[in-house]
């Protein structure tokens, strides 16, 4: 691994504020933005350890980093905290993590028809924290933007607010929610340049760019990696400052969950 500063390994207390670095060192501190492109899934996931907190982008099966998701199972790490809106569906995507029994805790917003997760919950092997979807992504956004906590109207007066501080603003009750940080983010992008500037495709974007901002190490599975300059600065969806590792994967299953169509007029 060329990225010597990528030290976010096993479970640590999440830290929301960047540590200040001293300038009184003999040589300038090493950055993380020189060499990001890796050749294999194994290299991309080299420092993922047991107990890691991992964010995974995707809305159900749309926008999944398929090779990285499979790679985590193959690597054999366990006791993971999975932070993702859903945890796969129809036996695909992150269902593989649940079926492999490597998830100890799941933080997300929706279960629905996810039978693998229902089974794991019934068996008591996975602890589940349910968050409203907007609060879920705002907690992640806050972590990436250096905001330790925020008040939101969503969930006031519901089970979501239980045990949390509340405060009235403009006559309306708000709930204090905390930032959500991770050791790693695994996301899918349509295109990346070598610095890690990203473009996403359609609704495959969803949680992914925000998750990249909130993880100590964000690992991107891109359909295509291009030279710097090949993406116009005005067309960048996520600046490369939030991206630490890039893997090009050209082939994807891109499975459908519900394939709804209408008849083409004759």
């Amino acid at each position: 691994m060329r990225d010597a500063d990528a030290d976010a390994g096993a479970a640590k207390e999440p830290r929301y504020l960047p540590r200040r670095m001293s300038l009184a060192t003999a040589s300038p501190p090493t950055g993380r933005h020189q060499h990001k492109v890796v050749a294999t899934v194994e290299e991309a996931l080299a420092d993922v350890k047991d107990g890691a907190r991992i964010m995974v982008g995707g809305f159900g099966l749309s926008g999944n980093a398929e090779a990285l998701i499979a790679g985590v199972v193959k690597k054999g790490v366990k006791d993971l905290t999975l932070i993702s809106n859903n945890a796969g569906n129809l036996g695909k995507g992150l269902n593989a993590w649940l079926e492999a029994g490597i998830v100890r805790r799941f933080i997300g917003s929706y279960i629905g028809t996810n039978e693998a997760l229902h089974r794991a919950m019934a068996a008591g092997t996975v602890e589940v924290e349910m968050t409203p979807q907007g609060t879920f992504i705002e907690r992640i956004r806050a972590a990436g933007a250096g905001i330790p906590a925020f008040f939101t109207p969503t969930g006031a007066g519901t089970v979501v607010a239980e045990g949390k501080e509340t405060r009235v603003f403009d006559g309306r009750e708000h709930v204090l929610e905390s930032a959500l940080h991770a050791d790693f983010a695994l996301v899918r992008a349509r295109k990346a340049d070598r610095f890690g500037n990203l473009r996403f495709y359609r609704t495959a974007r969803n949680f992914s760019p925000v998750m990249c901002s909130a993880a100590s190490v964000s690992i991107v599975e891109a359909d295509e990696i291009v030279e710097n300059g090949a993406i116009d600065p005005d067309d960048v969806h996520l600046p490369g400052i939030f991206v630490h590792r890039l893997l090009e994967v050209r082939e994807h299953e891109d499975a459908f969950e519900y394939r709804n169509t209408r008849k083409r007029p004759a």
Binding site: G60, N89, T203, E257, Y258, N260, T261, R262, R264
Partner: peptide, 22 residues
Amino acid sequence: PFPYEGDEDSQIINAGKQTVTI
């Protein structure tokens, strides 16, 4: 609305994860 048969794209979906159009 839902796409015409043959035009569906798994990466263009609504919040119910159904294929839609833009």
